[in-house]
Design a protein around this nucleic acid. Structure first.
Lengths: 126, 126
DNA sequence: GCATAAATGACAATATATTGCCAATGCCTA
DNA sequence: TAGGCATTGGCAATATATTGTCATTTATGC
């Protein structure tokens, strides 16, 4: 059986995602976690993110016109949406959701999920 | 001054986008327009799409988790959203729009635009 | 502490999408 | 109709993101 070891790299990456309060890109994770572990390689970030996804700890967020972001699974499991700041290029979580979306669909279409991305300027950039 | 020539490749690509009734990927455009112009090269599709965008004839659509799609500019200028069929991987236009989105934003955030992608099964795949 | 195997990180390699290049083609004007 | 030049399309080259490899490091059970 395979054992999962608790390295400082894993912990740095996990805590960066956990404490960000917003979905992060691979590069953001790498840059931020490098503060804790300066030697951190990008290769390790990719590998660790995948493991955290497999372990159900982290979930990926697909957004339009940008690379995937990653957020804690317990955040992802609570239905929410995202805001994309066009100035600083960061993504933020947004609570709430417009309902009644299935009425927008043509006859015969079956709605399974939806993704809403708001864009503009975040508070810091406005 | 540069003159714009009216080739059968340009016309095939333009009409495919115009008549599709839904946003198409580069590959879809290439595959469909090849019906009119069998020799059509992918290189020409990329070049022609860019020209059509520069000429304001075609607009691109960014969607989450998939390559950009292209639709007629006169369609894009009418606010609408998209449906992604998870079975056949096609995108469709959807009329209507949930309003009041700015109330979802935290204090200080400025909303400029939004993009909604519904996912599920299209009528043909349901 | 020690042995062992998981994890790391540097680098090369790959995958994929898009573009540069250029000889050949063919649209358009005079 | 002929010539000029925009356009085409094949292929190489590039850009970018991600993964394979592997020697080295290091966490963990005994």
């Amino acid at each position: 059986m395979t054992t999962r070891r608790n390295t400082k790299q894993l912990e740095a990456i996990r805590s960066v995602i956990e404490e960000a309060g917003r979905p992060l890109s691979i590069e953001e994770i790498h840059a931020t976690a490098s503060g804790d572990v300066p030697s951190l390689g990008l290769r390790t970030v990719y590998r660790t993110i995948r493991r955290l996804q497999e372990d159900g700890v982290v979930a990926n967020v697909s957004v339009p016109g940008a690379a995937d972001r990653y957020e804690p699974a317990h955040i992802a499991s609570k239905h929410h949406h995202h805001f994309h700041c066009l100035v600083c290029d960061r993504f933020f979580d947004v609570d709430g959701c417009p309902g009644g979306l299935s009425t927008m669909l043509p006859e015969g279409f079956k709605l399974e999920s939806h993704e809403l991305t708001l864009s503009g300027r975040c508070a810091a950039c406005a």
